[in-house]
Design a protein around this nucleic acid. Sequence first.
DNA 1: AACCAGGGAAGAT
DNA 2: ATCTTCCATGGT
Length: 291
Amino acid sequence: MDLQIAGPYNYTRVLQRLSYDPLHTIDQNSMKIPLKIYGEHVVATVSFSGNTEKAQCNIELPSDFEEEGVRKITDIFQLDRSLLEVNEHFLHTDLAPLFGQFSGMPLTRDFDLYFCMMKTIIHQQLNIRFAYTLTERFVKSFGTEKDGVWFYPSPEAVSELDYEDLRKLQFSQRKAEYVIDTSRLIAKGELDLEELALLPDEEVIDTLIKIRGVGYWTAENILLFGLGRKNLFPVKDIGIQNAVKKLYNLDEKPSIEHLVKLSEAWSPFKSYASLYLWESLDNQKAPELKK
DNA sequence: AACCAGGGAAGAT
DNA sequence: ATCTTCCATGGT
C-alpha cells in the first residue's frame, strides 16, 4: 500500500534516529518493523521515497494483517500528522533555530508499549551506547527472530526469568529486579498498559510512579515515546539538561526550575522541544571507528 | 584515574 | 516533604 505523507516529513532523520538502536534493521530508505497483531508476530516493511516536502511511504504486510498493520505503522511513524502547526508554534521561540534544522522530524513512537517500558527502565542512568547494548542482549537472549527482525519477549516470558538471568547480561541487580518485577505485574494483570492510553498524562504518571523502578523520568518517557503524547519535557533528563546548556551557552547545567520556566513557552508541544534538543546533542551515533 | 551517563530507591534530615 | 547516599557498569 502506498501513502502520501502530510509534509513536511524528513524520513531521513527518522531512519537515522531509529538506526541508533542496533536491533533495528534499516536498508537504504527501507526498514522492517516487528508488529504484534492479534497476538501474532508480523513483519511490516516500510519504505520511503520523495523529499521532505512531498514524501511517500510504501507499506508491505501479509494481506490478513494489512488493515491493522497500516493503522499501526501510520501511528508509529506519524504519517498522517502534519508538522506545520508545530513548526509555526516554535517559529517565535528560542528554539526556532532547532526547528529550522530539524524541520519535518516527527515524534515517532516505539513499536510497542510494553517494550518501550522495558527499554526505558533498562536505559535509566546509562550512557546510550551501553544502554542499547543491554537492550540488544535482552531481546536476543529472550526474544524471537523472524524474517531477520527481532521480536522482544512477552511480559509472560520475562516474568518467568530469574534475576540471575539478567545479571549474566550485565544488568545491575536493581535493574534486573525492576524489569522482571514489572513484567510480573503486567503478566498477573495488576498493571494494564492498554488502559493507560485512555488516561490523561497526569494520571498515567501517577499510576506508573507507584511501580518500584519507575520514577518521573521513566513515566514521562513512556508517555512521550510509548503513548505519543505531545507535551512532555523530562527536566530530570541529563541529555535535556546538557542540550539546554549547549543551546543557551550556559556555564553550568540549568536548574530544574529554570528548565520548567523555559519550557512553558513550548506548551502544548513540549515533546517536540525534547526530541529536537536530544537530537541537537548529536552524541548517540555509532562510536568512532578505532584507528 | 576520575568523572559521567537520556535515574531511582532507600535512608537521613 | 526535601536532601543525601548508594546502586552498578561501560565509556571517555
